[in-house]
Design a binder for these strands. Structure first.
Lengths: 218, 218
DNA sequence: TAACTATACGGAGGATCCCTCCGTTTTGCA
DNA sequence: TGCAAAACGGAGGGATCCTCCGTATAGTTA
């Protein structure tokens, strides 16, 4: 537990937002730079999800991404920066997904899919959490901004399903965030076998649907 | 940010309680072993408090304690084990303090001193927290046992002050734990200058005292 | 299309760190 | 005093981190 990272006095600074590669300011990055940036983000996301954010060497991430270690460090000056970027990227991905779900055919299925996405995201986030805790307080603007985004998306998806009458009226968007959070904690505390969370998740979804509150399916 | 510790596949095991050196079972340790054990505990406690539990190399701790790295590893097979031992030791120290406070002259001052101790402890604990999080779920019996001890001590100290009529009756021992917890979070989130927590702490103490609830000192 | 330059790439290398292993030293006891 | 078990201590193998700088490439201009 609590592996990786040493070298110590690396300062790391406020991790200047890492800007990404997409848009915003800057003198426009070169094409290969943007490509490598994306590759690193993907590789890091996978690696973190598999081994935990603290048990992956940056050199392995660079290897997976097919770039040199120097390239990784140019894009992400510190492990923190990479962590933040992965986190922000995933939240952005969720935001995009929410956008699609808001125009999906079935608002009910949209909620289910949204929950699935939240759980998947939450699992990764949890593996990041130990490391993310470190940046709370220092750069918590990023975290709070991402939190706000998630709340907004979740509320919108739920709202639409409620308007369509398929989800109970007394459910709040933020409830989903809490539910998934608890669900993840529960499922990896209870030595859960695979599929365990899947079952619980379905249970939750059934509970959210209108009319499903009287008789729990035995 | 999430430094230290690597080497990877070190397993580390359930960190077999590290037993300490004082009493309990075992074929009685040799004098020098017990002495070095204590030195390491002290050195680790200081080092963790100064640089954070993840930013101190075990070799530095050994150096501070004036022992070889091998000795450190014999006493504490893993960083986790050392962390746990330091934590348990500090809780034990608090327990002893509480015992003394229960026979102190002024029950009111005792509460104040108890709060101070809790804050000091909490600060260290916070620096340990990132690492301790890792062991929650795996070996949470230690944590829950320590938590119970703290609650018990806190309740006793408060109770005595209430019996003496110097602390409001609607205060619970566990309130102090929550208060200090919140106070610490607040003080290192708000870029607090030194003395900031001191001020807040006095404020809290004033609030606990009987009769102090009417006019907040301007 | 060819030449040119700012930008990006890549990985060797120095500095730590972790943890094990084993020869040497110390302690407790007969 | 002599001895064996227990403890000490640090060298060394393996792995990471992060920097530095020569080389390759994308974009641009003639």
């Amino acid at each position: 537990m609590a592996k990786r990272a040493d070298g110590g006095r690396g300062e790391a600074g406020p991790a200047k937002r890492a800007d990404g590669g997409r848009g915003q300011a800057g003198p426009a990055k070169r094409a290969d730079a943007r490509r490598n940036y994306e590759r690193l983000l993907v590789a890091a996301g996978q690696a973190f999800a598999e081994h935990g954010a603290d048990d992956v060497s940056l050199e392995e991430i660079a290897r997976r991404a097919g770039v040199g270690i120097g390239t990784l460090y140019r894009h992400f000056p510190s492990r923190q920066a990479l962590l933040e970027a992965v986190y922000a990227d995933q939240v952005e991905g969720l935001e995009v997904l929410a956008g699609k779900l808001l125009t999906a055919e079935s608002p009910g299925d949209a909620v289910a899919e949204w929950l699935h996405a939240l759980v998947t995201f939450g699992r990764t986030k949890r593996s990041l959490s130990a490391a993310l805790v470190e940046m709370i307080g220092r750069d918590s603007e990023l975290l709070s901004a991402c939190g706000a985004t998630l709340r907004r998306c979740s509320t919108a998806v739920v709202q639409r399903a409620q308007d369509a009458g398929v989800v109970r009226a007394d459910v709040q968007g933020t409830d989903l965030l809490r539910l998934t959070h608890g669900l993840i904690l529960a499922s990896d505390a209870g030595a859960g076998e695979a599929g365990q969370t899947e079952r619980m998740l379905r249970l939750v979804i059934d509970g959210l649907l209108t009319g499903g509150s009287a008789e729990p399916a035995s």
